[in-house]
Design a protein around this nucleic acid. Structure first.
Lengths: 108, 108
DNA sequence: TTCACTTGCTACAATATGTGTAGCAACGAT
DNA sequence: ATCGTTGCTACACATATTGTAGCAAGTGAA
C-alpha cells in the first residue's frame, strides 16, 4: 500500500491521520468521485460521465489512490466503496447538508 | 462577493452548493487552514506557522476566498470563523473522527 | 472468424496551480 | 528615530491538471 494514515502527507511531517486525509481529499476531484458513488457502483466510464468528463488520466490516478488507501474497490459491478469508504461517504453527506445551510444563508 | 453557493464551480456547471463546496475545499491547504483555526483566532503569521509554513502567496489567496464566501473573517484578534465557518469546522471535526477510525483499521 | 461494440485504461502536450524566498509598507512601542 | 511586529506582494521555478487521441482486451452476434 502506497499511503496509509500514519504515513507521509504532503505539507505535513507529522503523519496524523487527519493530515493524510486532508492531503488526499484536498486534491481536485477526489471528493467529487467519492460523492458520485453514493447511490451505486459505477464503471470507469459511467463514473467519468458523472464527474463532468474529468480526464481519464486523472480519474485513473485518483481511483488508484483511493483503492490504495482502502476507501474504494473495483469488482465486477464496477467501482464502489469499501466499508471504510462508506463511512467517509456518510461524512461527505453531512458536508452536503452543511452546503445547503450555507447556500441558504449566503443567498439572503 | 466572488463565489457564492449558487454560483460557479470549476468542473461543474450546475452550481449545486455541494459542488461549490467541493471545489473550494478540494484545493490545497483550504481544509488545513480551516482546521488550524479550531481553537483560537490566529494572526496571518501564526496561522502560516501552524500550516507548515505554507507560502504566504497561497495563504493570502485562500484567506481572501474564505472571507469572500463567508466562512472566515478578519478582526483585531486575527483570522477566525464566522458562524457558518464554525458550522463547517464541526463537520471537519467529524472528518477527524473518521480519520482516526480509518487509521486504526488500516494499521491492522 | 470477423465485425461491431464496450471496457479500462495510457500518452502527451498545453495550461493552471502551488512553492519558496525575498522584501516592503504600515503600525505601535521604546 | 529605531526596532520589532504585522499583513501582505513579486517573481521565478516546480508540480498538478486538462483535453484529445487512441489502444488492447473482452463480449456477443452474424
Amino acid at each position: 500500500m502506497a499511503k496509509k494514515p500514519g504515513l507521509r502527507a504532503r505539507g505535513s511531517t507529522t503523519g496524523r491521520p487527519i493530515m493524510v486525509l486532508f492531503d488526499v481529499l484536498g486534491q481536485r476531484w477526489t471528493m467529487r468521485i467519492l460523492w458520485e458513488l453514493r447511490d451505486a457502483r459505477l464503471s470507469f466510464r459511467d463514473l467519468r460521465a458523472r464527474c463532468d468528463d474529468v480526464s481519464p488520466t486523472l480519474l485513473n490516478r485518483r481511483l488508484k489512490e483511493l483503492r490504495d488507501i482502502g476507501l474504494l474497490d473495483h469488482s465486477d459491478g464496477g467501482y464502489g466503496y469499501t466499508a471504510l469508504g462508506r463511512d467517509l461517504a456518510v461524512q461527505l453527506a453531512r458536508m452536503g447538508d452543511f452546503a445547503t445551510r450555507w447556500a441558504a444563508a449566503m443567498s439572503t
